[in-house]
């Protein structure tokens, strides 16, 4: 068993739907992804029937992003419920400010967050949460609709808690997640049997080869979302979280953009220091010895040492094949 470096990173993009363009409507989806102490990917899909759908979705995305970045949320006994409450409070305040009914800001919410070796996935509405684990791609949370095609559940509904789906647990062998709006699911999720399109497995496999979040977002813009646009006239949103990893001893050979992303350092001098501390650490040196070796202050070395702590993990199994049959679970 060798050490590898692993950092969860995220990418998210939305594309205005064909029918929205036809009808002169804005994109009413909002998508976000970020990495840090918590890695988050989310999609909020404003209701087509809601006059302020785009505003509602944007408010939800901002609220959830802000809340998930706070460490306090993760000490809450029920973070999922807290997220829903925060969204409701924010939408109610906006409705009051705008003197509009709450339903005018109707939006769904689908998200996955990774923190400290655990994940939390929420789905309220007709989005989909999928993941890649050692068994291959699988659906974590399915869409939940009303009886009719144009009906689903919204954060502004009478009982969002009653319709919220939650999945959470240790990451174990999970290597990547995806959340998507119903428009994107039209081409990525087969409703009849709850399986996933091969495209998702290929996207994950490609991203995990070492693509930076910017590069993945470019691929979403230029490749996946335009393909999906042929399947659905609705707005399209896909947000990914994926674990970037490589053997710790092999980091030096990786491209600069990869090293910057995995180590979480943008500045050249900071990157050089962190790589140097890593090399000493892999050589079995203690922090004080590393500081002496490198001619850096003990405080600087300790800072880089601590930053590396959550990134260094024991390598488990080789990366998964991209096109394995999907499995579903609820």
């Amino acid at each position: 068993m060798s050490l590898c470096l692993r950092r969860w990173v995220g990418s998210a993009r939305s594309l205005r739907g064909r029918l929205h363009v036809r009808d002169g409507l804005p994109c009413q989806d909002a998508s976000r992804a970020f990495a840090g102490g918590t890695a988050l990917a989310l999609v909020a899909d404003g209701a087509g029937s809601a006059p302020l759908a785009a505003e509602g979705a944007a408010l939800v995305a901002e609220t959830v992003s802000g809340l998930c970045a706070e460490a306090a949320l993760w000490g809450h006994p029920d973070p999922g419920r807290r997220i829903l409450e925060a969204c409701r409070e924010c939408l109610q305040a906006a409705a009051a400010r705008l003197d509009r009914p709450l339903s005018h800001l109707a939006s769904t919410l689908v998200l996955v967050a990774v923190r400290g070796g655990r994940y939390l996935a929420l789905n309220l509405g007709d989005g989909v949460v999928a993941c890649l684990d050692t068994g291959g791609p699988r659906v974590l949370l399915r869409p939940r609709r009303g009886e009719y095609a144009n009906q689903t559940h919204f954060l502004t509904g009478p009982d969002p808690w009653g319709h919220l789906q939650v999945a959470q647990g240790p990451l174990d062998g999970i290597r990547a997640f995806a959340v998507m709006s119903d428009g994107a699911a039209e081409g990525l999720y087969r409703r009849r049997d709850g399986t996933l399109a091969p495209a998702l497995g290929r996207l994950w496999a490609w991203a995990r080869q070492g693509q930076t979040p910017d590069r993945v977002e470019q691929a979403l813009d230029e490749t996946l979302l335009p393909l999906l646009a042929a399947r659905s006239g609705d707005d399209l949103s896909v947000a990914l979280l994926y674990g970037l990893e490589c053997p710790a001893a092999a980091l030096e050979a990786r491209p600069l953009s990869f090293r910057r992303t995995v180590l979480g350092v943008r500045r050249s001098d900071g990157l050089a220091h962190r790589q140097a501390v890593l090399a000493r650490r892999l050589a079995g040196r203690a922090p004080a010895e590393a500081a002496a070796d490198l001619g850096l202050s003990p405080a600087t070395v300790r800072r880089h040492w601590r930053a590396l702590d959550p990134l260094l993990v024991a390598r488990e199994t080789p990366p998964d094949a991209p096109d394995r049959p999907t499995r579903t679970s609820q």
């Binding site: 039209e186 081409g187 999720y189 399986t195 091969p198 996207l203 590069r215 691929a219 399947r231």
Partner: peptide, 20 residues
């Protein structure tokens, strides 16, 4: 490896029937 672009075509998507 990281320089290779993502290659996908329509066959990598699934078909869902039109809502009736």
């Amino acid at each position: 490896m990281t320089d290779r672009s993502l290659e996908l075509d329509d066959t990598a998507l699934v078909d869902n029937p039109t809502a009736r």
